[in-house]
């Protein structure tokens, strides 16, 4: 497989991998490293790519596992990702589209959700995968996904309502 063939396969979903990694790891740099790692792993196993039924779902599963492992090892080392040095470079873009502050809040509140709910919310509401695909990626049945998704959406909304009505978090 040549490099361009590989890129043709990988291109459509590399952003999704990156966004999922960023959702879980929060920092942009960490997410970039993780994405790089995932793509390199795929590249090194490029002979096997044709055997995979669904490269995209496979990569998303890989990303999820990779990021969760990373988080686990961070917890084990008693280290936490420091957010103080992390600045969203897209803030100006945010202003351009005249989004109000609450959009920023959504991101913060999503960070507080349990990992599983974060992943499901990310895959469904942002990446718009259907339940069948999510089920394959996470190895879960669809009812469980719906339940978890519903919980995530409700708690996101409740927390947002709180910040809206009091103006504080």
């Amino acid at each position: 497989m040549t490099q361009s063939e590989f890129l043709n396969i990988v291109m459509p979903f590399k952003d999704k991998v990156f966004r999922l990694a960023k959702r879980l790891l929060v920092s942009k740099e960490e997410a970039e490293d993780a994405t790089q790692e995932i793509l390199l792993k795929l590249w090194n196993n490029k002979q096997k790519i044709s055997e995979y039924k669904n490269v995209e779902a496979f990569s998303m599963t890989m990303t999820k596992n990779f990021c969760l492992d990373k988080l686990k090892s961070k917890h084990a080392q008693n280290l936490k990702i420091v957010h103080s040095n992390y600045q969203d470079k897209n803030v100006s873009l945010q202003k351009q589209v005249e989004l109000n502050d609450s959009v920023g809040w959504v991101s913060k509140i999503m960070e507080e959700l349990p990992e599983q709910q974060k992943i499901i919310l990310q895959l469904r509401d942002i990446e718009q995968y259907d339940f069948e695909e999510i089920g394959k990626m996470l190895d879960m049945n669809q009812t469980a996904i719906r339940v978890s998704l519903s919980r995530a959406r409700k708690s996101l909304r409740e927390k947002l309502t709180k910040t809206h009505s009091y103006g504080v978090k």
Binding site: D15, Q36, L39, L40, W43, D125, E127, H164
Partner: peptide
């Protein structure tokens, strides 16, 4: 209003892209 910020956030984050190069050494 709450849903507006949620959905706008979803749309906005969907635009984010991975821009870093991946060094693919054969």
């Amino acid at each position: 209003e709450v849903y507006k910020s949620m959905f706008q956030y979803f749309l906005y984050t969907h635009e984010e892209q991975f821009t870093k190069d991946v060094p693919l050494k054969s």
